[in-house]
Design a protein around this nucleic acid. Structure first.
Lengths: 183, 183
DNA sequence: GTCACTGCAAACAATTTGCATGTAA
DNA sequence: TTACATGCAAATTGTTTGCAGTGAC
């Protein structure tokens, strides 16, 4: 997305905020633009705040959180949770997103033809009388590379389970700590 | 599931633990049995610990966590996160589960014919070279009842967004706080 | 007798909130 | 001028860990 596109779309979102009765502040503008600049990926609050800080170091963490929650409330963002220990936000662009995450290396890929997939998911939940809402669906798998390399989910670690003396930390305590970059 | 079935399956899981080199403790037995008694639903650590406490109040929170993490590591459990602010565990029974959660009332329903759905999900991730692993997939929707009642996602709250003076708490701050029982 | 396991309390990390102050409208 | 928004720091909450003691094998 070009800088101009970012500015344009940011302006559109800011208008939505205004229509909702919110005030247009410099902070919100920066946060929304930063979000748009990272639109391909889902961002953690931590990462987003860091990027926002590069532009204006005075913006507080709480403001980032508050802004994201408003945007989620307005369905401009989706909040997702991959079990990393924190949540991520994605621009919703009205619709359903489907991602796969590799359980071994943590890589995340977004699937194609989301419209078709959305239709199928719609049918599934309809079986139980539900209607589907815009959201970001997360699937877990193992990516080609890891499968080829024979890497399994963080070593089955056949030994017993304890948490202290022997070594710095159990592998499965670490599992939820993935902090990598996102595709 | 009858008491006998619970005991039998618990025994089976305990054997798996033993084979893995873990010790069989009374705490682990209680935790696994309690898990099986609540096998239809996904449980939060909070709820599970409460139920375990009814049987033996001396079992610590940390032990419950540690046991669940071992069971997850062994793929006996799946961990899922509905954005409630905490995670839930479900018995995996080898395979893929699909749940829908109502964004309005929080009700969770498990979908039928999970084998067929698993096949489809398998194809989807295969498009990107991934293989699917046992997991619990969460979809968001709005249930029949809420749709009929015309209830929308926690009131669009058209007003501006602030966090303090006016009232105890913003609606969307509460959204992640659902603590209801699970279907 | 060993060494994994437990309970407890302290440590952590993500997220929320209260409050004094700033600022858009 | 009015009240929403911000920044900061403190509070909350889910989760993890260190440690000393316990108990499975």
């Amino acid at each position: 997305m070009t800088d101009d596109m970012v500015r344009e779309r940011a302006e559109a979102y800011l208008q939505l905020l205004r229509e909702r009765g919110c005030r247009l502040t410099e902070q919100r503008r920066i946060i929304i633009e930063t979000l748009l600049e990272n639109a391909e990926a889902s961002v953690s609050v931590r990462d987003l705040a860091a990027k926002v800080h590069e532009k204006d170091a005075s913006v507080g963490f709480a403001t980032v959180y508050r802004t994201l929650l408003i945007l989620e409330e307005m369905d401009i963002l989706h909040q997702t949770n991959l079990g990393e220990g924190f949540s991520r936000f994605v621009l919703s662009e009205k619709g359903v997103h489907v991602h796969v995450r590799c359980r071994v290396c943590g890589a995340v890929t977004r699937l194609e033809q989301e419209d078709a997939k959305e239709k199928i998911l719609e049918e599934w939940v309809a079986e139980k009388g539900f209607s589907l809402v815009p959201q970001s669906v997360q699937l877990a798998g193992i990516c080609e590379e890891c499968r080829r390399a024979g890497r399994r989910e963080e070593d089955p670690s056949p030994g017993p389970a304890f948490c202290d003396r022997a070594g710095p930390m159990r592998p499965f305590c670490r599992r939820r700590r993935f902090r990598g970059e996102f595709a």
